[in-house]
């Protein structure tokens, strides 16, 4: 199982990284979510390596016992991951709100086009959509942005 888990984690990281390299804000957020899944799985797998292949007991002290019985699943990474899941959701909600807010104001989803100083001013989405359609943006943006070539 560890083998497959390792490949799964690698796949999630690769997909998350690929999506985060996109210029579309929404894809970046999707990538972040997939990345977070990979990270959570890795913490759990790394914190608990040997026991993945045996049938572990859940980390709950059975009635009558004084402590966890071997072999138990490591409770510490579980506690870490549990809060990470919830925090990750908070982050996701925030980035989604950010994306929506940005789109409402600028009318674009392309993070490179957002750097265009002319786009930071339009107050409403309707105005922005009237001002720049996406075709125009694609032709205008690269010239208007200094150093677009860097890292893109």
């Amino acid at each position: 199982m560890v083998t497959w888990l390792a490949m799964l984690i690698g796949g999630l990281y690769a997909a998350g990284f690929y999506l985060m390299l996109r210029r579309s804000l929404i894809k970046i957020i999707l990538g972040l979510a997939i990345f977070a899944h990979g990270a959570n799985l890795m913490i759990l797998a790394a914190g608990n390596p040997r026991r993945v292949d045996v049938d572990v007991k859940i980390p709950i002290v059975p009635e009558g016992a004084e402590q966890l019985l071997q072999p138990y699943a490591d409770p510490l990474p579980q506690a870490l991951v549990l809060t990470a899941i919830v925090i990750g959701f908070g982050l996701q909600a925030f980035t989604l709100a950010l994306a929506k807010s940005v789109y409402d104001r600028m009318g674009v989803d392309d993070v490179d086009a957002m750097r265009d100083p002319d786009l930071t001013e339009p107050p409403t989405r309707r105005d922005a959509q009237e001002l720049v359609s996406h075709e125009e943006l694609d032709s205008v943006a690269p010239a208007a942005l200094p150093g677009t070539a860097v890292g893109s």
Binding site: V2, A6, G10, L12, Y13, M42
Partner: peptide, 18 residues
Amino acid sequence: LSLMVGAFFTSLVWGIAT
């Protein structure tokens, strides 16, 4: 690039597990 990153994390997990 992404596949390289993925391959690295796979070997990382595998390395830790072994």
